[in-house]
């Protein structure tokens, strides 16, 4: 068994270098396809993070009747927090609302008109962030049922429209990634098939001298795995070199997005390595199989 594995690995290594041109062509194709796959994966991750961010922006704002005691506000906050649809509740006092408004005006470089007013015209409010945008209707109704609430800004239609768009984008991104994955699969499998077909005579001789299927198949499978591994290492190397400028750009572009670069890197390594080695093995297995079935 061990000698069989050693034999297969040795033959795989020889096979790779004896047909160096073919093997390098297969590896180059593998690198390009894996880069394509990785590129679309990065775009998909960014897209998903962007959509999630957009959806998290959805919050229901309820303006309160004037002069409600703090205890009542806290009781209301507690009731809202207990709802599963609610992620967090923030209480904006009238003073806070005024301060926020002034800061916002100043930031936009506009004149602060509130300085001409005698008193604070703003209402205190509760800003309710939702766990899921879909919960907007329930939360809005719950707020309307509170006697201390003066009015609730109706954003249900808006939320519905945002959800429609994000769902379409999410589906489109997934479909696109799958399509790219299938394309990469076919191209890689075909390239490896070419490398195997180039050695059809060798396989025929092996069959004629009485080599068992395992002895014919495994050297090619190992060789395919090696092409995949080498392709993945090169592709990851290129990605690592490109990571600095790309992540700089990403950070600029998605400054506000909750992208986890650590987990993205881990996912990329797993994806590229898995796709490379997996497709290498699959391609060899399928290609050799056509010669073994009789």
């Amino acid at each position: 068994m061990i000698s069989f594995v050693v034999f297969s690995l040795k033959r795989a290594w020889q096979g790779f270098w004896r047909n160096a041109l073919m093997s390098l062509a297969a590896t180059a194709t593998m690198v390009l396809m894996l880069l394509l796959l990785a590129g679309f994966f990065i775009i998909q991750t960014g897209l998903l993070a962007g959509l999630q961010f957009t959806e998290q922006k959805v919050q229901v704002v309820a303006y309160l009747q004037p002069n409600i005691p703090d205890s009542q506000v806290q009781a209301m906050e507690g009731r809202l927090q207990a709802m599963p649809e609610v992620a967090s509740v923030a209480y904006i006092t009238r003073d806070q609302a005024l301060a926020d408004f002034r800061a916002s005006m100043k930031e936009q470089g506009r004149e602060d008109l509130t300085q001409y007013l005698d008193s604070n015209p703003l209402y205190a409010s509760l800003e309710v962030k939702l766990a899921e945008p879909a919960g907007v209707a329930v939360v809005t109704q719950a707020l309307r049922d509170e006697p201390q609430v003066r009015n609730v800004i109706n954003i249900e239609d808006l939320v519905q429209r945002v959800l429609t768009v994000t769902n379409i984008l999410r589906t489109a991104g997934t479909v696109l990634l799958l399509v790219v994955g299938v394309i990469a699969l076919f191209i890689i499998v075909n390239t490896i098939r070419l490398a195997v077909v180039a050695r059809a005579e060798e396989i025929e001789i092996m069959r004629l001298v009485g080599a068992s299927d395992a002895f014919i198949r495994w050297p090619f499978v190992f060789e395919g795995a090696f092409v995949g591994f080498l392709g993945a290492v090169i592709a990851l190397g290129i990605l690592a070199l490109a990571a600095e400028p790309i992540s700089g750009f990403m950070v600029d572009f998605f400054r506000v997005l909750p992208i986890q670069f650590g987990s993205l890197t881990r996912d990329l390594v797993v994806l590229v390595m898995g796709a490379g080695v997996g497709l290498g093995i699959l391609g060899s297995w399928l290609s050799v199989r056509t010669y073994l079935i009789r």
Binding site: S3, F4, F7, M206, V209, G210, A211, S212, F215, I216
Partner: peptide, 11 residues
Amino acid sequence: AFALEVTGTPR
């Protein structure tokens, strides 16, 4: 030797 190697003959 190939004919022997691919049929698992001991070295």
